[in-house]
Every structure is written in C-alpha cells, then in structure tokens.
Design a protein around this nucleic acid. Structure first.
Length: 425
RNA sequence: GCCGGGGUGGGGUAGUGGCUAUCCUAAGGGAUUGUGGUUCCCUCGACCCGGGUUCAAUUCUCGGUCCCGGCCCCA
C-alpha cells in the first residue's frame, strides 16, 4: 500500500472494468449516432457563475469550487447540460435546427459517497435543442429507451410526467412560488405526510390538497390520464399532451413507459414533459436517468430556445448491469508471439509488427520467458492464439500457430501469416 | 452535515497486550535446454494514520482518515 490514497469518492478502474465500461459507453454512443445525434465535448470545469445561473447559489456548497490562480471562481462541472447549452448560446445558435447533441464525461459533486454515488462520476446524456415539439420529446424518450435496450439492461422502469399539470393546479390555488417549490420537492419524494403539514401551514384547504395528492399519485398507462381528468374535473392540455406522447412512443416501439404524474424533478427550469428511469436492483440510489423538456438558454443570455434531453448516470448503469447479470462480452486479443530462443526474436518482432500493421491485435513476449511460462501468460491474458517461432520454424519458414482453447496447432508460412489472421477474423 | 458497520501482504483471510503474525491466492523465479490452465519448491510482500493507557499496543482507548450501507440532499 502506497502512502498515497485516492481522494475520497474517486475510483481507479481496472483493465477488466475499463473494458466493460468502454463496451457500454460505445453501445450508448452508437445508439445516439443511429438516432442522428452528434457528439460534443465541453470543458471539465466552468466558471462557477454558469452553475449558479442555472441552479441558484446554494449549489456552490455541493460542488468542487475554488478560486484559480488568476482569481477566477471555477467549478468542476456537476453535470453537463449547462455546459452544452452555454456552448449552444456561445457558438451553435445559427446551426440548423433541431440540434441533436450527445456527450459523455466525468462530473464532480462534493457529496457523501454511498452506493451508486461518487464524488467523481460519469454521465452520458443527449439534448435536442431548438424544437419545442411533441416530436422531440418522443424522440428523446425513444433514444433513452433504445440506449437501455442497446446495453441489455431490462430491469428498469421509465416514468413520464408533465409539470404543466401541477402548474395548472398551482394557478387554480393561487400559490406563491416558494410554496410551489416546496410542494414540488415533497411530491418528488412522495412525502404525502409532510405535504399535509405544509397544507395546514400555508392554508391550503384539505380538499385541494387531497385532490393534489390524488393527482400526483396517479400512474399507469393511458387510463391514468383519464383518471387525472376526473380528479381535475376538466380537460388539461398537459394531459392531452401526455396521451399523444404515449401514442408516439408506441410508434417507436417503446411500450414500457409508464405515466406517473408524481415525477416532479427538483429543478426549476424544467417546463413540460419530465421523466425518470429507475433500476430497482440498485437500492437507495436507484435512479439511472433523468430528463425532460426545458428552456435554459435565456438564462445564459441567449434567445429562449426549447430543448429536451436527459442524462444517464453511467456508473449506475454499470452497477445495475452487474446486479442483473447482464452479459458483457470480453475482448479477446488475437495472438501472442513467443520466441523460443533469442535467435528467433528478430523474426518474431517482424511478425508482430506485420500483424499489428494489418490491424490484428498482436503481442510479443518481452520478458524472455521460456515457452511454458509464455504460454501460461498468454492463457491468463485471454489470447485466442499463440505464435511459436524457434529454430525449427526459422528453418521451415513457417510459424506454429496454436489455438489456445483447443491446443491444436498448425504451421503457417511466414509470408501468409497476416492473411491467415485477417481471414480468420 | 447525521447514524450504523468496517480497515492485517496486490486480492481474500486467521490470530494475538509480548515470542519469527496464519493460511489461500496473485505476482516473479525454478523443478522443465520446444508446448499453458495440474503438481512441487523458492522469492516477494501486511497489522490505515496520530495521540493516550502500559514496561510493552496490530490488539485496549480517543481522534482523524478511507471504505461499505443508510439518512439529508440529489442538478
């Protein structure tokens, strides 16, 4: 053990873990690209003001935030949407709409680590900027759903709500904004008891509060929307929106989305559709994805533009896949070249170079090991084959290619090795 | 910020107020001068940090730190 430890809440990833993480990351990115999204990258740190503008001054306490040597207030990004929208306002406003962007990156929050929560963690997210439509919301939900399908994570629950419904009720009740925010937070937590207390304190009638609780407790398929209309005693544009959204999702083949009018999200800038995805296997921190439609650009000095997007907690996806036993194929290296004697080493280097240039993953003994040990090494590193070259092979101008799984060997002329491996693949 | 459980070689562990700190595994080497996953041998390598009690602390105690689970928060 070195005297130096990792900072709290950070992790080192082993070769095996990275292989899995890159596999999943690649699957997510491939899905996004197939949906017509393009990757962007923004800085790991931003001026603190950006996040304050987005979320309020309290956020500073929960970020890695500091003054740099030039006296600037800097924050390690706690999420990436703010950066993407800032980037949009700065430089992408004149691009053809809609702008479909995705990103993957590390984020930092100064929080107490626990299961599924780290101080450095990773998010994969996507945003559609510039389109206020039902179509965009559906597209984004379909992307999130396809991402999960793409990585093979099945044990998940997607819940879709709409903030317009709560907003309508708030207007009817004529509540001030502070109370609205409190209610939203409690609704998000499903803390109906505390909600009752709050109702008493802010002289909201029992009748109104009961109605609100009934409303946000509604979940299920299209029938939940009908029930909501009954509770409201009227039609509501947001409810209509949700039922049309469900129809759209069906066209995308997304049948697992559930209506949940209790999805409130803790964030003020969400304006319309909001959704969350949970992985029940995760325990306390089970939310793997959150998103919705919002306007944020005007906060950063741009023109108001409707956007819709989401972010996956990448680390939680990995944990959930692990818990659910989702299989991730292991990467096999193709071949390990073993010089039997020092005289064969030069030829072996030529062979390994040729194979590498031909795009074949090839490695070579660097430790001068004897063949037995070299084969054991190749075995433990999961090579598909080994190439053995010694005096006999040099004389015949043929390499011995050994299949590591079966132990079968065949002789392949040096000149044909590259072709042999390329066609094998 | 709060509550609970932990910390012994790289990984997994046993154990102890004092004696060479146990075992498994991994890694490196050898048995084996051209054939791996078996076997045998050798080597390497640990009591989280600091204070206190004590003749003596890895062990008891206090504080810190980190890990695990939960609360708060969750963008």
């Amino acid at each position: 053990m070195s005297e130096f430890q990792r900072p709290r809440g950070t992790r080192d990833f082993s070769p095996e873990e990275m292989q899995k993480r890159r596999y999943v990351e690649n699957a997510l990115m491939t899905t996004a690209r197939n949906f017509g999204f393009s990757e962007v990258m923004t800085p790991t740190f931003e001026n603190t003001d950006l996040f304050i503008a987005r979320s309020g001054p309290e956020i500073v306490d929960e970020m890695y935030e500091f003054e740099d040597k030039g006296g600037r207030r800097i924050a390690l990004r706690p999420e990436i949407t703010a950066s993407v929208i800032r980037y949009y306002v700065n430089e992408l406003q004149t691009r053809p709409k809609p702008l479909k962007l995705y990103y993957m990156g590390n984020c930092f929050r100064y929080e107490r680590p626990q299961s599924g929560r780290y101080r450095e963690f990773f998010q994969f997210g996507a945003e559609i900027v510039g389109s206020p439509s039902l179509s965009s919301d559906a597209e984004v939900l379909a992307l999130a759903s396809s991402c999960l399908r793409g990585i093979g994570l099945k044990n998940v629950k997607m819940r879709v709500g709409h903030l317009g419904i709560l907003k309508g009720v708030f207007e009817e009740m004529k509540l001030d904004e502070i109370v609205q925010t409190d209610i939203r937070r409690l609704v998000d937590k499903r803390d109906f008891e505390e909600l009752g207390t709050l109702a008493a304190e802010s002289d909201i009638s029992d009748e109104n509060m009961d109605r609100l609780v009934d409303l946000v407790s509604l979940k299920g398929g299209a029938e939940a929307i009908g029930k909501a209309k009954e509770v409201l005693g009227r039609a509501d544009p947001s409810l209509n929106y949700l039922s049309r959204l469900l129809e759209r999702l069906a066209l995308y083949g997304v049948g697992d989305a559930e209506i949940d009018l209790g999805v409130a999200r803790g964030l003020d800038y969400y304006s319309g559709m909001v959704f969350e995805i949970d992985a029940p296997s995760l325990g306390a921190e089970k939310q793997v994805c959150g998103g919705g439609s919002y306007t944020l650009s005007e906060v950063f000095g741009g023109e108001e533009v409707f956007s819709t997007g989401f972010a996956f907690g990448f680390d939680r996806l990995m944990l959930a896949m692990e818990n659910d036993g989702v299989d991730i194929p292991s990467a096999k290296l193709e071949t390990y070249v073993i010089p039997v004697s020092d005289t064969a080493r030069a030829k072996c280097i030529l062979i390994v170079s040729e194979l590498r240039n031909a795009g074949v993953s090839a490695d070579i003994d660097l430790m001068g090991r004897k063949m037995g040990k070299a084969l054991a090494y190749a075995d433990s590193l999961n090579f598909r084959t080994a190439i053995i070259v010694g005096e006999n092979e040099l004389e015949d101008e043929k390499a011995t290619v050994r299949d590591m799984a079966s132990g079968e060997q065949e002789s392949v002329p040096f000149a044909e090795l590259a072709r042999y491996f390329c066609t094998e693949l």
